[in-house]
Design a binder for these strands. Structure first.
Lengths: 199, 199
DNA sequence: TTTAACTTCTATAAGTCTATAGAATTTTGC
DNA sequence: GCAAAATTCTATAGACTTATAGAAGTTAAA
């Protein structure tokens, strides 16, 4: 009943968050029921409420789990003093690695439809737009330093990178044998040079 | 009771499909109830079943509505005898225009989690992968004709274009004042030349 | 105007799902 | 090994949803 700080409690709560992430990612929040989550984790439906106050709270935890180090990593990249090229490569690498590792929670996080109800969830959503703004800042710096063309629209560029990484991330998740390094290679090459032959 | 071919029946059914698209897009299939759809359309919950056998059938219709001309347009582009550049521009233009017009239905269509149950839905899903394969073919031709670099991975490239268009499409939908032409410009410039300055 | 076909409504059965209460079981500290 | 605390279980109330049946209302044709 108490959210006690027991070792087991914390472990089981983490396990519950991961189970919720898996089930939500597969069927969507409204498509899953607490029974599914409990079964995935190996306990009974009612027992889940020892770890969460509600299904909504489980969702909050999954979203937080999915986004937190993702954004932290971006801050480090953005604040660093590398070149534009290095920062963009680091971003793509971080985004795609994170996708492989926590794709389920990220998938849940990325579902826009879930961001209306709670205040907490709105704050979580803001983390995502922070991420985009940081990336936008990287592009702006790149423009100032002359690394990228003046014609580039930084807002669009950031959106494009994120959209592309998500699309590639899906591929990575579906095909676990796919070489992450190769994907990153392809992705950065497109972003820097485009597809066209310049011979 | 009969799925009669009355004028009014057909009109109301279309209206029901559009309402379903709007509600599903906002709340997700499992997050919406037939009452929401009926209210959006201005009738009572039970009356909806005069137009659909089930909620699932409504979903099928929404998906079909969202994807059909989208794919047809792609076939025309792919089969045409334009240059690689022209085809890619046409693809991006078609994709983004379609997004502005039917984004709700497309959003529903793009939700993977809905593609397990019915045979009909699996066929619909296939239309999406047809689309990607056609685009992949355009890239392959571009490689043969020397328009694009040999190092480009056509499978990834197609996925990248689609992912980027979807991300940009979201922007367009959220900000209706956004100039479609400018977005297309940005998008194609990235795809052809990348961000990097080549001075 | 009358009649038949069409469209919409009301009411509800049957099912599912969340969240809670309290009992039962397991674990921990002494 | 015992008592207290922590964890899990069972059972269920209460709410919500889909889909159906049949009544009521509307439109169209003769």
């Amino acid at each position: 009943m108490t959210s006690s700080g027991t070792r087991k409690y914390e472990q089981q709560r983490q396990s519950a968050i991961r189970s919720a992430a898996a089930v939500f990612a597969e069927k969507g929040f409204h498509g899953s029921c607490t029974k599914d989550i409990a079964e995935h984790m190996g306990i009974k439906q009612g027992s889940l409420y020892y770890y969460f106050k509600s299904k909504e709270e489980a969702l909050d935890e999954v979203c937080l789990y999915g986004i937190q180090d993702y954004v932290q990593h971006m801050e480090k990249i953005a604040d660093g003093d590398q070149t534009f090229e290095a920062k963009l490569i680091a971003t793509v690498t971080s985004h795609l690695s994170s996708y492989r590792e926590k794709n389920e929670a990220l998938k849940v996080y990325n579902d826009e439809r879930l961001y209306l109800p709670s205040e907490r969830r709105r704050r979580l959503k803001k983390l995502g737009s922070d991420y985009r703004q940081r990336l936008e800042g990287i592009f702006e710096n790149g423009k100032e330093s002359g690394a990228i063309k003046q014609s580039v629209d930084c807002h669009f560029a950031a959106q494009a990178v994120i959209g592309m990484c998500n699309a590639w991330g899906d591929l990575i998740v579906r095909d676990p044998d796919l070489d992450l390094f190769e994907v990153i290679q392809n992705c950065t090459d497109l972003l820097f040079n485009g597809f066209t032959n310049k011979s």
